[in-house]
């Protein structure tokens, strides 16, 4: 089972690097969708003995949302708002990938030095979760477009969810669903807002939005 876990975790890391290194928005969206699928399958690999109906349902909902619905919504927003599909980073792509790898190194170092009181099912899980979280934050900071902010938020959330997988064997179903619903609305609102912002100001540049403050 370790092989499958490692494979899924490495897929998550690769998706992180992909998001950071890609210069086209559609490609970034695909990367995040890919990460969603890997994350959705992760519980089955981690807890093969505890597959229950609610777990399956949760995974299904999660995968559907993250791999189908969100990418679709974001792509729609991309098309309808006629955003230029360039990413426009503050920090270059090459450097961003270096940052991604560095975040992984940092997280590995962190968990080597301070092991958790509980034993997570895979010793790579926690570092990957934390580094995904960091990458999400980095995306929020270092990218210019509002759409990439949404993507960064999704990656960030993936990190949190992976972390949760390691800490709690079973997050209460309702909590998980609540989180998912939350993001769903976030993305939904983001899409609509993007559309309206675009109509009102003819730009999606967060720098220019900063000038709106009183």
């Amino acid at each position: 089972m370790t092989g499958t876990i490692d494979f899924l975790l490495v897929s998550m890391i690769l998706a992180n690097l992909w998001v950071l290194g890609s210069s086209r928005l559609p490609s970034c969206i695909r990367a995040v969708a890919f990460q969603g699928v890997a994350l959705g399958l992760l519980p089955f690999a981690l807890y093969p003995g505890h597959i229950t109906w609610d777990l399956v349902m949760l995974a299904l909902v999660s995968i559907t949302l993250k791999a189908v619905v969100f990418p679709h919504l974001l792509k729609r927003a991309l098309l309808e708002a006629r955003v230029d599909p360039q990413v426009e980073p503050f920090v270059g792509h090459g450097i961003s990938v270096v940052v991604g790898v560095a975040s992984l190194a940092l997280s590995v170092a962190l968990f080597r030095r301070h092991p958790l009181p509980i034993v997570p099912p895979s010793d790579l899980l926690m570092p990957v979760a934390v580094s995904t979280l960091l990458v999400g934050l980095f995306m929020l900071i270092a990218r210019r477009k509002a759409l990439t902010q949404a993507l960064g938020y999704l990656v960030f959330e993936n990190g949190i969810q992976a972390f949760g997988l390691g800490v709690l064997q079973h997050a209460p179903l309702m909590v998980e669903l609540g989180i998912l619903l939350d993001i769903f609305f976030a993305v939904f609102v983001m899409g609509i807002t993007l559309f309206h912002i675009r109509r009102a100001f003819a730009t999606l540049d967060t720098l220019e939005m900063a000038e709106l403050r009183g």
Partner: peptide, 10 residues
């Protein structure tokens, strides 16, 4: 290769 290295040493 760095990724592979992390997998090996973790």
């Amino acid at each position: 290769s760095l990724l592979a290295l992390f997998l090996v040493i973790r």
